[in-house]
């Protein structure tokens, strides 16, 4: 059975048309095993499923990295006579896939992503933490029962709907308000993306705040402090790492947000002038991919994959970082990991 599974996997990886054969064999073996040794089969099957999860992450990493290698090689610069692959991607600011010299600099998109993420975090972090505090410590039962699903639904509204409303309502409005040429500004993309990252911050921060033991809170209240003092001096410091993990995850969401950015931004990969001009929105890493996948091929396609790699690595690092922080918090509070 295992052999069949591995074989089908290999076949799939090689894109062989004969993949179906080992798949069928595997299913057959699993079926026979299920009938005869159900316990063992279940164990092996669930183990295979576990491995599959890790495998998917590995596959993603490998495949998108491999695709991006040509453009890294193309954008090689020499520093002190030593060729450094990919350096030019970050030292120049020119992205042009049509006119010579053809350059695929990532700097404008990184700038855009940083702008959007900063604004989004400025929106989502304070509001999200305040809302989490409200939900876990302040809200009376009935209010909580309304607000909590509300926040979940906020997470459920598809990003394209946010983008659509932003595109049809917010962008024209902002353009008129700030008298800009054309539509699309980092400011409003940031606000919309912040709204989308908000539920992530709220739910993770709320978990962290509620995991502070009730006895600590009562201990503080019994000292005669107000509940607000208890929150600021006991609950938030005790849950600090959890709350910061929540903010980090929110940042991760904001970095990876695609559709709202794609439809609301201008889609012109260049820097804004001056750099802190938030009233103009050019391009983020995510919108670059979504805007250009259709007509890109060759090196340009590889450059899109490179943007994906940058996104992936950043977000993965943030995810691992926040997990580490949460793990430390649980250890500190003496709870289960």
């Amino acid at each position: 059975m295992t052999v069949a599974l591995v074989a089908s996997l290999v076949g799939f990886l090689l894109a062989s048309p004969f993949t179906a054969l080992p798949v069928a064999l595997f299913l057959l073996a699993a079926g026979v095993g299920w009938v005869r040794y159900q316990g063992l089969t279940a164990r092996v099957l669930t183990f295979a499923m576990t491995i599959a999860t890790v495998l998917i992450l590995l596959l993603i990493t490998v495949y998108i990295t491999v695709e991006s290698i040509p453009v890294i090689r193309y954008e090689t610069t020499t520093v002190f006579g030593v060729p450094v692959p990919g350096l030019r991607l970050f030292t120049e600011t020119r992205w042009d896939a049509v006119a010579e010299p053809i350059r695929y600099s990532m700097v404008p998109m990184i700038h855009g992503t940083v702008m959007v993420t900063t604004i989004a975090t400025a929106v989502a972090a304070p509001l999200g933490v305040a809302a989490a505090l409200f939900l876990s410590e302040i809200a009376p039962g009935a209010v909580r029962e309304v607000v909590k699903p509300g926040v979940e639904i906020l997470a459920g509204i598809p990003s394209i709907v946010y983008g659509f409303i932003g595109f049809t309502i917010l962008s024209p409005w902002a353009s008129e308000q700030f008298r800009t040429t054309g539509q699309g500004s980092y400011l409003f993309v940031g606000i919309v993306v912040g709204l989308m990252a908000l539920p992530t911050v709220v739910s993770v921060a709320e978990d962290a705040l509620s995991s502070v033991p009730e006895s600590m809170k009562s201990g503080s209240l019994a000292m005669g402090t107000t509940d607000w003092q208890t929150m600021t001096s006991i609950t938030i410091p005790a849950a600090f790492s959890g709350v910061s993990a929540a903010v980090l995850l929110g940042v991760g969401r904001a970095i990876g947000e695609t559709m709202a950015a794609t439809v609301m931004l201008r889609g012109v990969p260049q820097l804004t002038e001056p750099l802190y001009n938030v009233f103009y929105g050019q391009e983020t890493l995510t919108s670059l991919i979504a805007n250009n996948y259709g007509n890109a091929h060759g090196l340009q396609m590889d450059a899109l994959f490179l943007a994906g790699v940058i996104l992936f690595i950043t977000v993965l690092a943030i995810s691992i970082g926040s997990q580490y922080i949460e793990w430390r918090m649980h250890r500190k509070l003496g709870g289960e990991v």
């Binding site: 033991p213 201990g219 500190k332």
Partner: peptide, 8 residues
Amino acid sequence: FQSPNPFP
């Protein structure tokens, strides 16, 4: 309280 609850 019943169980010691010092602040962290």
